[in-house]
Nucleic acid binder design. Structure first.
Lengths: 202, 202
DNA sequence: GCTGTTCTACCGAACGGTCGTTTGGTATAT
DNA sequence: ATATACCAAACGACCGTTCGGTAGAACAGC
C-alpha cells in the first residue's frame, strides 16, 4: 500500500513512546494514590504535558485504567495451563504452578496492586474479563489439587477451599514484597511451592 | 453533678443511635463503592438526612473513615496475645491463633475490606496505628513459629517468611468469603488451622 | 532544492459538574 | 426559654473533558 504516506517513521516511533510513557506513569500513579485520588494533572506532570494534551493519546481516564490490565495475565495463565495439562505427578505439577504464579505476581506488582484495589472501578466488560481470568486460575489449581486428592498424592476432601488457601498465600505477597528486600523472587517462589505441597500432605 | 441538665435521656439515646447508624452506613457504603467514590450524599441518603446534617455528628469525611478502624483489632489482638503467651505446645498455640485470626477477619469483613483498600487515605497518625497493630500481629505469629522451629515442632529456618505466608492465606479469606455461602466460619477457621500446622511440619 | 500545503502533537483556557463543607435559619422537645 | 437536631441553600475548590488555536515537521509539486 504505497498510497499511504506512512506518516514518518520517526514521528510514529516518538508518538508510540509517548503513549507508553503515559501508560507507565498512569500505572505508577494509580498504584501510589489510587485511581480516584490520582488526577489527570498528576499523570500529565509526570510525562511533561498539559492535562488536556493527554486526550490526544487517551480517550478517558477510565480507558487508561482498563488498558493497564489487558493481556497482563496471559503469560502466567499460559504457563500454568501448560503445566497443569502436561506430564508429571500432581506434586510436581503443583510445585511448578505455584512457582509460576508467585513469580507472575512479583513481576507485575503494580498491576496486581492496582487491580486488587480498583476492581470496582472497572466497567462491566473489563470486570467480567478479569473475573474470568481469576476463575480460570482457580479452576486450574483446583483441578490439580482434586486429582492429587483422588490419587492419594494429597490429603483432604475440599479442593476448592485448598485452592483458595493456596492462592491467598501466594497472592498476598503483593502486600509485603519489596523489590530490593532480603528475599529474592526465586527464594520466595521456591519456599511457597514447598509450603503448598506440605499444606496438602499429611 | 446535678447542675448539668443531662439533656434528656431519650434525646441522648436517639442521638447516639443516629451516630451509630451513620457510622454503619458509612462502613457499608465505603466498602461497596470505595472511599473516594462514596459521597456524603450517599451516606446521608442511607440514613435519611441531608448531607449537610451529617456534620452535626461528624467533623469530616476523613474522620468518618478513621473512626471505622479504631479499636477494631483490639479483641482479636488480645486473644492472640493471650494464646501466644499462655501454656500449651507451639502447635497448640498456633492452631488457636490461626483460628482466632480467621474468625477475626470474618467477623469484621467490612472493616477489613475497607482498610485494605483505603489504607493510603488514612492520615499519618491513624496509619501508624494500624501499621503498628499489623506488625504486632506478625510478630506474635513469628514468635511462636520461631520457637516451634527451635524446639523441633516445626521445620524451616525463616519464621518471618512463614508468618507472612500464613497470614496471607488467612487474610485473603476476606476476598472470597460469602456469609451465606457453603462454608461456615468455624469450618474455614478449623481447616486453615490444620493447614497452617501442616505447612510448618515435615 | 525550494515553496506552499497538510497534518501532527501539543498548548492554554474554559466548561460543566460534583463534592466536601459552611452557614443561617427553624421546628421540636425539654 | 433554651438547647437540640435538622433543613436548605450556597460556596469554593477541584476534576475530567472539550476545543480553538499553533509551531513545526513531513510531504507534494515544481
Amino acid at each position: 500500500m504505497r498510497s499511504v504516506p506512512a506518516l514518518g517513521r520517526r514521528r510514529q516511533r516518538r508518538s508510540a513512546e509517548r503513549e507508553k510513557s503515559i501508560r507507565a506513569a498512569a500505572l505508577r500513579i494509580f498504584r501510589q494514590k489510587g485511581y480516584h485520588a490520582a488526577s489527570m494533572q498528576n499523570i500529565a506532570d509526570a510525562v511533561g504535558l498539559y492535562k488536556g494534551s493527554l486526550y490526544y493519546y487517551v480517550s478517558s481516564k477510565e480507558e487508561l485504567l482498563v488498558r493497564l490490565f489487558e493481556g497482563r495475565a496471559d503469560q502466567v495463565l499460559g504457563e500454568i495451563r501448560a503445566t497443569a495439562g502436561g506430564t508429571g505427578t500432581c506434586t510436581e505439577q503443583l510445585r511448578a504452578m505455584v512457582r509460576a504464579y508467585v513469580r507472575g505476581v512479583l513481576r507485575n506488582l503494580d498491576s496486581v496492586r492496582v487491580y486488587l484495589r480498583e476492581e470496582h472501578v472497572l466497567p462491566p466488560a473489563a470486570l467480567r474479563q478479569v473475573h474470568a481470568e481469576q476463575r480460570t486460575m482457580r479452576d486450574l489449581f483446583e483441578g490439580v489439587i482434586g486429582q492429587g486428592m483422588r490419587d492419594g498424592s494429597f490429603v483432604g476432601t475440599d479442593p476448592k477451599l485448598a485452592a483458595l488457601a493456596l492462592l491467598g498465600m501466594c497472592t498476598w505477597v503483593h502486600r509485603w514484597y519489596r523489590p530490593r528486600g532480603r528475599l529474592t523472587e526465586t527464594a520466595i517462589a521456591d519456599d511457597f511451592a514447598e509450603r503448598a505441597i506440605r499444606m496438602l500432605s499429611v
